[in-house]
Amino acid sequence: MNFSKKNHKHKKTNNYLVSKSIIKTSVLALLFLMAFATEVSGQSKRSSTTTTTVKKKTPVKKTIPTKKVSRTKVTYKKPTKKVVSVRSVPNKKVISHNGQKYYYGNNKFYTYSSGRYIAIAPKIGFRISTLPSNYKTIRYNNFNYYNVGGIFYTRINNQYEVVDPEIGTIVSELPDGYEKVEIDNQTYYEYANILYEKVQVDGTRAYEVVGIIDMD
């Protein structure tokens, strides 16, 4: 009888130990699963944050690859250009260049035809001794240009000569009389055979020289 009681007590102890071991194992497994779930959740959050980060994109420029652009590749949006002409130019100055006479007044250059003075842009190489009063200085690549109504001058000795600006030169606004043109299905702005495209400089709209129309 005593042996039976001892044996029963021993079995009870073993059952207790087994149950305790099972509980311990279950608790450890549960803690492991909780830790794993927490790590997965953290990784998921980090992954979500990375994929939703929005970076400021730099717009792809459509800059013309070469400086000189054949006139045959340029299509003007308007079939005709508005011609500005006047009957007289008060206090005009006469300047000759390569056999052509220019008449300067009202901060513009004119040519004379059929009794009227027609506003024109002076050609490359044209020189004057004094800049018009409305010029603006534009610095690019440590070089000064003098811009007068869309015409670029550079100083040579004691004179100012009309030149083509370098590609990349920036102006804050387009000159009066500019035209919209299309080259390879892309829109640009043209004045005096200089091609521009619209850009942003420090959040402000500006225009960059991207090419020169070759008239030959």
Rank of each mutant, 00 (worst) to 15 (best):
V199Q: 05
K82R: 12
N134C: 08
T25M: 15
F143S: 01
K108P: 00
V162R: 15
T50M: 14
E190P: 00
I138A: 03
Y196T: 10
K93Q: 09
I156L: 15
K180G: 02
G150H: 03
H10R: 14
V181D: 08
Y188D: 00
M34T: 06
K6P: 04
T154E: 10
A121Y: 00
K62T: 05
V54R: 15
N193Q: 04
M1P: 08
T51C: 03
H97Q: 05
Y160M: 09
E39F: 11
A35L: 14
T53A: 04
S47G: 13
T204D: 12
K61V: 03
H8W: 12
Y160Q: 10
S4Y: 00
K11E: 14
P90M: 03
N193K: 03
T53H: 05
S172F: 08
V209G: 08
S26W: 15
K67D: 01
A37Q: 02
T72H: 12
E179I: 05
D184K: 15
I194N: 00
S47P: 03
Q43L: 06
P79R: 05
K55H: 08
N15K: 15
T111F: 01
I64Y: 01
I194S: 03
K101S: 13
V86C: 10
N158S: 13
G125K: 04
L195R: 06
I183A: 10
S4I: 07
N193L: 04
A206P: 09
I22N: 12
N158I: 05
P122E: 07
R116N: 14
P132N: 02
Y178T: 05
V171Y: 00
Y207R: 06
K20Y: 11
P59V: 03
D214L: 06
N134K: 08
T72K: 15
V83I: 15
S4L: 08
R139Q: 03
T204Q: 14
S44A: 09
V74L: 15
A121C: 09
T130W: 05
L174N: 03
D216T: 02
D216W: 10
S133R: 10
I118P: 00
V40L: 06
G149D: 10
S41V: 13
V74H: 14
Y112D: 00
V162C: 13
A119D: 09
G125R: 03
V40H: 01
L195T: 04
K78T: 00
K5W: 08
T80D: 01
A206L: 07
L174E: 00
P122M: 12
D184R: 13
Y191H: 15
K93M: 10
A37S: 08
T75V: 10
G149I: 07
Y153K: 15
G105I: 06
T53W: 12
G99P: 05
G125H: 02
S4P: 01
D164A: 07
I120E: 01
K68F: 12
S96P: 09
T58H: 15
I151F: 15
L17W: 00
K6C: 12
T169P: 04
Y189G: 11
T25Y: 14
K198M: 06
K55S: 10
R116S: 11
K67Y: 07
I183M: 07
S113D: 10
N158R: 12
T204V: 14
K81N: 11
Y153E: 14
S19C: 03
